[in-house]
Amino acid sequence: MPAVKKEPLLPGWLLLMGALTALGPLAIDLYLPAFPSIAQGLHATEGQVERTLASYLFGLALAQMIYGPMADRYGRKLPLIGGLVIFTIASVVCTLTNDIEHLTAWRIVQALGGAAGMVIPRAVIRDNYDTREASKALSLLILIMGVTPILGPVLGGQVLLFVGWRGVFGLMAAGGALLLLAALLTMRETLPPEKVTPLRVSIIAQNYWSLMHDRQFMCFSLAGAFGSAGLFTYISGTPRVLMGIYGVDPQHFGLIFALGAASLILASQASARLLDRYSLEGLLKSAQVSIVLTTLAGLALTLLDWLTLPLLMLCLMGFMASQGFVNPNAAALALARQGRRLGVASALMGTMQMLCGALAGLAISHWQSHTAIPLTGILAFCAFVSWLFGRIAMRAT
């Protein structure tokens, strides 16, 4: 009897899904060190440049609502290809813009393409795996995505040093083009024909309506969404705090920023290993307690004026480590019972994450302070709300 060939722990299709999922965050992390240069080059304020990030997040949020129904009707591959084409073209145009208003507008278009990489991979994973294995796969995706926040600002800082901020957007365009080629050549369709959902407004509306009335789905999704809002607060707020308040050099910013990303990676892999011994719900509950205590400690140290750079990084690393447990387990629990509407459910969950992230980004861009209070205050708020929705979801379960 021939031996059954086992699928590797990290199959090629999952690596591609990880790279696709990292595309949207890449367009965030890569240009963070370029904020001061963009402001100077386009004669814009620091707040205006920060709002290009918030506009990108809003674009990601809204576009996911479109990709979800399309993925349930036309399959996973075709909408993804279209999104990658849009992302690549918009990235090229961003390199050519001459004012902050046009950059903000094209960042939205860029997000409309990048959103495909946020929706499709989650649906593909649930096409292939059950809930527990999906959580492990999502943890592996976080490992791959974690390379982006580590390498993104570091790489962006070096590109900025040699070719300026326009070269940073050129690198985004190159990444989009490479992923487009990889998807065209290697990706197979995973949506079973019997699960195809007609693309009718009434059916789409009914699916979204029923999802919004599914207490378990909404609460687990919101627990993850407010955790993600804290993550985007970290992304949006740390450039100003580290470079503006603590005087970190732009070329060194990426290395310090990477400490948080490394914490996220290590914790997500620990979460995947612990799933063999503990339940998803148990890991999520413990992580949400940890995230609240960590962020409250950071806020208290800020208010007492005791927050040094090492203490700030310890609090931020604790927050990111907790997120490594919250994100994959909350997502897997939210999608556990969605069956035929995985694309729509993935889209709605992603939309909530991006909307919460965009609102957090807007809040921190408008909250001007010479201290780290905007960063630590919004992180503490997001952590508490994430914990609250997690508790509600556990009781619904």
Rank of each mutant, 00 (worst) to 15 (best):
T88P: 11
R73I: 02
W306V: 12
E189Y: 02
A360V: 06
S55M: 15
L348V: 01
A300P: 11
A90F: 07
G390D: 04
G18K: 01
V154S: 03
L309R: 08
R166K: 14
G114V: 06
A262T: 13
L179M: 12
R273Y: 05
R395C: 06
L211G: 11
P310M: 08
L179C: 09
L180Y: 07
C219H: 15
L103Y: 11
T45A: 12
T52L: 04
I265H: 00
D276Y: 11
R395I: 10
A287Q: 07
R341F: 12
A123L: 04
M70W: 13
G227F: 02
L16G: 08
T131I: 03
G298Y: 07
W306G: 14
L379I: 04
S135M: 10
Q216R: 14
I364W: 05
F162V: 13
L379R: 02
P36A: 09
I150L: 12
F220G: 05
Q338L: 04
G224R: 02
A115I: 07
G47L: 11
L314C: 12
L255S: 12
P328T: 02
I150W: 08
A105L: 15
L143Y: 01
M354D: 01
A134H: 09
V92I: 15
D305P: 02
A183M: 02
K285M: 14
Q323M: 14
F381H: 00
L140F: 13
G339W: 08
L199C: 10
L222E: 07
K6R: 13
A267S: 15
R273D: 02
S268R: 02
I203N: 09
T308H: 10
A272F: 04
L333N: 06
S268L: 07
I364V: 15
G156Q: 05
A116M: 09
T97Y: 00
L312T: 11
F319E: 01
R126C: 08
L296E: 06
L307M: 15
G68W: 01
G324D: 10
A90R: 03
G224K: 04
G170L: 05
V241Y: 04
L266T: 14
L57P: 08
W13K: 10
G227W: 03
G83W: 04
W106L: 12
I142A: 11
L112F: 15
G24N: 11
